[in-house]
């Protein structure tokens, strides 16, 4: 399989035992992978490993075939420009307005003039449906709008690979559905590869080509919706059905 992203025998340990142990995962170009699993067991860590924000204790993180952490800083930075990330709590720049948040990566990393940047900002604001809030600051807009802004900023440099860390956390079901539809629409438009963390199974099925469960330091690759539902692993079965009793009980962080 052609790989755009890969973890090869990756172990990560923050000092109290390995969170992930010799895990392997490959993501093909244009694929949508959804990571599910109990809280605190490493879903966001997988995203941060791919994004180059965390370094594995051992093993390799490959992005477009290149070992991300073996690259010199400028090459790593160039590769990061091909990736975008929506953070769990959005990580919006609170001293910048909504419009300036989207303009930030363009001002920093492109040679576009201000007119073109403004045109791009308007385009992205329109695409995520918050054009009327351009002059407001992040703390002046709702949680759903903040998510939309986070998505717009993640996509501002038109990355080929996009990571979404819990894009529907704390949102009502209707807004959640709209956000997932927006992600899908933007994915089709940009033809991008996406890796999403969510524990909302309805949204996971809606979005995923492949579902991967993170538990016990392992990555359990379950496949699409049908394969996931039919998966025999008791941990997967317990998690997707939300059963109180089972092998995962007591392991939540």
């Amino acid at each position: 399989m052609q790989q755009q992203l890969a973890l090869q025998d990756v172990t990560i340990d923050f000092g109290d035992g390995p969170l992930l142990k010799n895990v392997n995962l490959a993501v093909a170009p244009g694929e949508s992978v959804v990571l599910i699993g109990p809280s605190g067991l490493g879903k966001s860590v997988v995203l941060k490993l791919f994004a180059g924000l965390l370094k594995p204790t051992s093993g390799k993180v490959l992005v477009e075939g290149k070992d991300l952490h073996a690259l010199p800083a400028h090459e790593q930075s160039a590769l990061q420009l091909r990736m975008g990330m929506l953070f769990q709590k959005n990580a919006l720049f609170d001293s910048l307005s909504v419009g300036e948040n989207i303009a930030f990566p363009m001002r920093e990393k492109t040679s576009l003039d201000e007119t073109e940047i403004q045109r791009q900002v308007d385009f992205f604001l329109e695409a995520v449906g918050i054009a009327y809030a351009a002059a407001l600051f992040p703390d002046e807009i709702s949680g759903g709008m903040q998510k939309r802004l986070g998505i717009a900023r993640a996509l501002a440099l038109r990355p080929q690979i996009v990571f979404y860390d819990d894009p529907t956390a704390g949102l009502d079901p209707i807004t959640s559905r709209r956000i997932i539809e927006l992600i899908q629409k933007l994915r089709e438009e940009q033809n991008s590869t996406i890796v999403t963390v969510t524990n909302d199974m309805a949204r996971a099925y809606q979005l995923a080509d492949r579902i991967v469960m993170v538990a016990d330091g392992e990555l359990i690759i379950t496949g699409g919706k049908a394969q996931t539902l039919a998966n025999k692993d008791p941990r997967v079965s317990q998690f997707i059905r939300g059963k109180l009793d089972g092998p995962l009980t007591g392991r939540h962080a």
């Binding site: 941060k48 994004a51 180059g52 924000l53 930075s77 160039a78 990061q80 420009l81 990736m83 975008g84 990330m85 953070f87 990580a91 919006l92 720049f93 609170d94 930030f104 990566p105 920093e108 990393k109 900023r153 993640a154 501002a156 440099l157």
Partner: peptide
């Protein structure tokens, strides 16, 4: 926010 700056290259 600092991670976001890094992520934006």
């Amino acid at each position: 926010q600092i991670d976001a700056i890094r992520c934006l290259g």
